[in-house]
Nucleic acid binder design. Structure first.
Lengths: 330, 330
DNA sequence: CTGTTAGCGCTTTCAA
DNA sequence: TTGAAAGCGCTAACAG
């Protein structure tokens, strides 16, 4: 293992000088010594020991990213956005996946705290479980007390910088657009009861229907993924339009309807939420609410990195996109 | 910032004792002291400083994962598999995305070396650029000389543990299956010329056709993503079957044919490669070659973590899956 | 501009 | 078992 000291000796300079040229110091070093050091470093194959550097500096070049599931394109898009800004700032990203277990989220915050990462980004819906949220906040507070920065994509429940998708408003706008097409009987593939993102979307959709004087929708719970959408869709009947609270569930619903011989949109209209890029080529193309996922991930990390007194909440509006999976009733 | 020393003092024990109880030492500590230390740590809110630990131990609990693009479900699936084994081993994962720039891959290896990660996992096709490969190997060798472990998912070109998908064989098997359906005129949406995964699939497919005495396929190059498939497909004509060298490109091709009013599979059959789970609900369902992506990612990390004398190469066979996007010719 | 030196927080012999 | 103390490799005053 080649150390800075080896390089310094090899170059015939002091440790400090070697440090200054090799690791971004503001201090200047004379051209000749600089060249010597660089040569020695190259010859010896020196690589900075980041652990030592972090210890000495008291600050690391790593940020933490906690997502529910990387294979869910929603999180992949969010992560991609965040990783691009990390790259620009020369930061490495440590990723943890919770597989939707809130306990693991807390554990990751603790681990990332131990790693002394510069910032932690929590992506994904909060849960309705108050106790879990309390413990998460506790862990986050501990981390922040020691100088850690935190941002979150999701509900503003943690008292940290937050990029909050306007789930209620988006779902409400979607409901109105669907009502405008003539739909009156709705079912919602609602996801898990405890997931706030799912709840908010259900609530916004339902409230809008109510305001329009339309009958309350049939609400079917299930998991927040493709299979949840499939399962819930098998229980749908007697409605002209189905709202799946995310695109991935909508894909499951389309599959279920296909298997049941129910045509979309002729027999039933289907809408989703998120507008996942990978799913844009679906047939029939999915009516949905577009969220700028990559930008949201990027924005969240920017917030975390940009120190501020108060926690900021950035609300992100969704845009209703009508496509072939929903049709106008005549 | 609470340090181990604070905890030790608070508990009235030595630094060494506190270290032994808080951080997995094999050494035993008496029950009463142990309890005192744990209490003090909890009261003070102590969190291990991993940088200090890494420096003192000379080994970290982090592994590096370098992928081309996280939003590509191929890499997401690979990453997911790898991250699950990391989780089991209590390892954190540092992720870098190259966005298909081979230079960045080299840079990441260097950075991960500086981080002294336990192992580096390189996921994704190698390039045909010999100079880039040489420099990558150089960087990897330097890392390995200092005790780093490396594994790769892709072509066995780096002299490290490798999980190598049988691209040639899979593509050949696919070609034979398609020929069995009666197809004679083929086009290949071939991806970039320099990408070995793409090359191997083209070569395997072409060789099989040749062996069967069938005419050589039309080979159309393009990017390795959805748009590459779309673009290439716009240039297809006069064939009954199109092979896109990956599923994501096949999706692009389906979109292009749809836009051109060409029906799949009635007018033209389309096949892909990979069998991306997220894409299984596509209509028409895609004929493809199934690769156990999550398992491949997991296996690669296992290889890297399991020290061995010789570099091992694990070949992974693909399984041809015939679905609706290809039809039998009569 | 360059060098000396005191830590950063933890692990790990070595003694007791 | 427990404790004392010597580092791990690097940074950042401080002095020159």
């Amino acid at each position: 293992m080649v150390t800075l000291e080896d390089v310094a000796r090899h170059a015939g300079v002091s440790l400090a000088t070697a440090s200054r040229v090799l690791n971004g110091s503001t201090r200047q070093v004379g051209a000749s010594l600089r060249a010597k050091v660089e040569l020695a470093a190259a010859q010896l194959g020196y690589r900075t020991n980041v652990a030592a550097q972090t210890l000495a500096r008291g600050a690391s070049n790593v940020v933490g990213l906690v997502v529910h599931d990387l294979t869910d394109p929603y999180f992949a898009a969010l992560a991609d956005g965040a990783m691009r800004v990390a790259e620009n700032q020369e930061l490495m990203v440590m990723v943890g996946t919770t597989h939707r277990d809130p306990q693991r989220e807390i554990a990751y915050v603790s681990t990332l705290n131990a790693q002394r990462v510069r910032a932690v980004l929590l992506a994904g819906s909060r849960t309705a479980d108050q106790e879990v949220t309390r413990r998460l906040r506790e862990e986050l507070d501990r981390y922040r007390e020691s100088g850690g920065r935190v941002a979150c994509v999701g509900q503003d429940l943690l008292g940290v910088d937050t990029v909050a998708p306007a789930n209620r408003e988006g779902a409400a706008a979607l409901a109105r657009a669907l009502a405008r097409l003539g739909h009156r009987g709705f079912a919602i593939l609602a996801g898990p009861e405890g997931l706030l993102t799912a709840r908010d979307r259900v609530a916004g959709f339902t409230a809008a229907l109510d305001e329009l004087g339309l009958p309350a929708p049939l609400v079917l719970h299930g998991s927040f993924d493709r299979d949840g959408g499939y399962q819930a869709a098998t229980r749908v009947s007697g409605v002209t339009c189905v709202f799946a609270v995310n695109d991935v569930m909508a894909v499951g619903a389309l599959a279920a309807f296909r298997d049941r011989g129910i045509r979309v949109p002729e027999d039933v209209s289907v809408a989703g939420f998120d507008d996942i890029p990978t799913l844009r080529d679906l047939v029939p193309a999915l009516t949905t609410v577009r969220l700028p996922l990559a930008r949201m991930g990027a924005r969240a990390l920017e917030l975390a990195l940009d120190v501020a007194e108060e926690a900021r909440v950035v609300s992100v509006a969704g845009e209703v996109v009508l496509r072939e999976s929903t049709r106008a009733l005549d």
